[in-house]
Design a protein around this nucleic acid. Structure first.
Lengths: 346, 346
DNA sequence: ATGAAAGCGCTAACAG
DNA sequence: CTGTTAGCGCTTTCAT
C-alpha cells in the first residue's frame, strides 16, 4: 500500500523520486515508460522508491508534454422517458472497464439535443480528449463528418447508414439478423401468421430489423401480406396496433422492433383475455429490463453490448496507435433470449 | 463559427493570439480569466482574434499551472442484471449537464467490485480530478473516510448511515417519506390491510423506507401485525412472498420497497386471477421503466434524481470554491406517480 | 492597464 | 544504459 498523504502535502514528483533513488529524472521517467531501457538493479531501486513514496505521474504534465490526454469523449444523451433504454448502462460500463485496461478514461459531455455536433469541437480544441466514441448514429453521422474533417480519431456504435462508403471504423449489431431470429423462433413454435410491429419508415434501424422478419417469412414460404405494421415507439400506440391485428383472430405471432412495442402487445392480450405464449407468441427487441421483469416474461432479441464496447475500445486503440485498421467495420450478431411469451405450453 | 482546422495543423496558443492582437500573452490570459482588468478596446480586440483563430485554451497546460483539472470523478457501477436501476441514467445525465455549466466534466472510472475504494486514489494522485461524486453509499461510506483522510473534496448521493455524525456534504432522498406516501395512498383508496414487502433487514435504505409504511399505518390506526415481510430484491422471491400474504384473502394493499418487488406482486396477482387496482392495490418504488410500461401500469414512488444531481453539483462547486458549506446535508422529498395498479375503478 | 520572467511536472532529443 | 537540456502552454508574481 501507498502511504497516506493529504492533498495539501506536497505530492512527490519525478524529481523527488529521482533524488531519493540517486538517479536523474529521465531515468525515473524511463522506469515508468520504457522499463526495458534500464538495468535491472536500477529499475528495481527506482520502483522501490516509487512504491515507497506512493508516486503517481502527474497527468496534466504528461498530457502537456505528450499531447495526449488518455481521455475518450462520450456524448451522453439521456434515454427518452418511457423508452426501453437502460441499454447504455451495460454498454457504458464495459466501455469504462475496457478503456481502463489501457489507462484511458471516459469523459462524459453533453450538448444541445438539437445540435448533434455540439460539444465535440470544444473538447477537441482544448486537447482534452484523444478520441471519441459516438453512439447516436441513428440520425446520420454528421459528427463523423466533423471529426473526419478535423482529423480527430473516433469510432461509432452504429454503421454509417447515410453513406455506406464511409471509411471510418464502426461496430454495429446486425438488426436484420435479430428480426430474423425472432421470426424464425415464432415459426418454429408453430405460428404461421407472424406480424411485424415496427417503427416508422424513416428509422433505418427499424427498417433493417424488419427486413429480417421478411426474410424469415419468405424462407418459410409464409405470407406477409397485411402483417407488416409501422407505429411509433410507445406502449399505447403498439397496443392499438396489436388490437387491430388481433381482430381477425388469425394472427398469432408478433415480432416487434422494440420491447416497448412488445409490451404494448402484451397489454392488448391482457385486455382480450389472451394468454401470451399459449395463445399468442410475442418477441421484443433489446432484452431490456422490462422484458425481464414483465409478466410472464418477454422473449427478446439481445444485443451483445458488452462485446460491442470491447470491439469499440479495440478499434479506438488501433486508431490511436496510428496503425492501419485491418478491419474497421465490425458487425456483431444478436441472440435470442427465450421467455414465456413464446412458450406454447406455458 | 470557428474556422475548420485539422488536428495536424498547429493549434493556436496564447502566444499566437497575443502576437496577432499585438498584446502580450499575459493580456490574452487576462482577457480569458479576468476580463475586468482589461481596457474595453483591448478586450474587444483580443476577443475578436480569439474568435477568428478559434482559439481554446489548452486544458493540460492550464491544469498543470492551476493544479485543477475541472474534472469530477464518478465511479461507474453497472446496474445488477434484473434490478430496476436505469435510475443512474437520469441522474448521470443531469450531473453532466449541471457540471458543464461551470466548465467541469464527469470522468468515469471503474474499480474492483469487491473493493469500494479501488480507483479513487489513483485518479487523485495523478491530479486527474478535482473532486468526486460518490453514489454507492448503501454499504457504508469507506470512500468518504478515505477521501476525507487525504483531504479530497467529495459529495455523496446518500447519507452517511453508519456515522450520522459525519460532516461531509451529502444529498439524499427521504425514503421513509416515500414509504409513507405509498402507504397513505393505499389507505386513501380504501385498503385497510396494507402489507410491506421489503428488502432484507441489513439494508439501511430498505429499513428506512419501511419506517414510513409503519408510520402511515400507525397514523391511520391500522394493524401492522404479520404484514411486514422482508425478501430479496427479485421478481420471483417477491412473487412467492405475495402469494403467502394473499392466502388469507384479507390483505389487499401492497407497498413495496422496489419496483422489482412490486412487479413480483403483479405476477402473483396474474397467477391468481386478481385484478391490480380493482382487487389489489400495489405500489412500487423508483418509478423505473418497468413501472411505466408494465401492464396495467404500476403506481410508484419517484425520486427527484434530477434535483439530486443539481444539488450535488451545487455542493461540489461550493466545496471547490473553499467556501464554508452552509447546508452540507440536503434531504429531498420523493413524489408518488399514480398509475392503474392502485385505481379501484380501473 | 499591460508586460517580462519564472516555473508547474513531465518527456523528446540528444550527449555521454 | 544514464544524464543534460529544452520546452509543451499556461498562469502567478512582480515590475512598469
Amino acid at each position: 500500500m501507498s502511504p497516506i498523504r493529504r492533498l495539501t502535502d506536497a505530492q512527490p514528483t519525478l524529481a523527488t523520486v529521482a533524488e531519493r533513488a540517486g538517479v536523474s529524472r529521465q531515468t525515473v521517467s524511463n522506469a515508468l515508460n520504457n522499463p526495458e531501457l534500464l538495468r535491472e538493479d536500477t529499475l528495481a531501486r527506482v520502483q522501490e522508491v516509487i512504491a515507497e513514496l506512493g508516486y503517481t505521474p502527474n497527468r496534466a504534465a504528461r498530457q502537456l508534454r505528450t499531447r495526449s490526454s488518455h481521455m475518450i469523449g462520450l456524448r451522453f444523451e439521456p434515454a427518452p422517458e418511457g423508452t426501453s433504454n437502460a441499454l447504455m448502462d451495460r454498454f457504458v460500463h464495459t466501455l469504462v472497464e475496457a478503456t481502463a485496461k489501457t489507462g484511458h478514461h471516459i469523459v462524459l459531455f453533453s450538448g444541445d439535443p438539437d445540435d448533434p455536433l455540439d460539444g465535440y469541437d470544444e473538447l477537441l480544441r482544448a486537447t482534452a480528449v484523444d478520441a471519441f466514441v459516438i453512439t447516436d448514429t441513428y440520425a446520420g453521422t454528421p459528427q463523423a463528418d466533423l471529426l473526419h474533417g478535423v482529423g480527430a480519431p473516433f469510432v461509432t456504435f452504429g454503421r454509417p447508414w447515410e453513406d455506406p462508403s464511409a471509411r471510418h471504423p464502426w461496430v454495429d449489431v446486425d438488426g436484420a439478423r435479430g428480426g430474423e431470429l425472432a421470426t424464425e423462433h415464432l415459426i418454429e413454435v408453430g405460428h404461421t401468421r407472424v406480424a411485424w410491429l415496427g417503427w416508422e419508415r424513416e428509422s433505418r434501424i427499424g427498417e433493417d430489423r424488419r427486413t429480417g422478419w421478411r426474410r424469415a417469412l419468405d424462407a418459410a414460404g409464409l405470407d406477409a401480406t397485411g402483417l407488416g405494421v409501422r407505429t411509433t415507439d410507445n406502449v399505447d400506440a403498439a397496443r392499438m396496433a396489436a388490437h387491430e391485428l388481433l381482430e381477425d383472430g388469425r394472427t398469432t405471432g408478433f415480432a416487434c422492433v422494440s420491447d416497448t412495442i412488445a409490451l404494448g402487445v402484451l397489454h392488448a392480450l391482457a385486455e382480450r383475455g389472451l394468454r401470451p405464449g399459449a395463445d399468442i407468441g410475442v418477441v421484443g427487441f433489446d432484452d431490456s429490463l422490462g422484458a425481464q421483469v414483465t409478466w410472464p416474461g418477454l422473449t427478446s432479441v439481445r444485443q451483445p453490448l458488452e462485446q460491442v464496447a470491447i470491439e469499440i475500445v479495440d478499434l479506438v486503440n488501433t486508431v490511436l496507435s496510428l496503425k492501419a485498421v485491418a478491419n474497421p467495420a465490425r458487425m456483431l450478431e444478436p441472440t435470442l433470449v427465450v421467455r414465456r411469451s413464446t412458450l406454447r405450453d406455458g
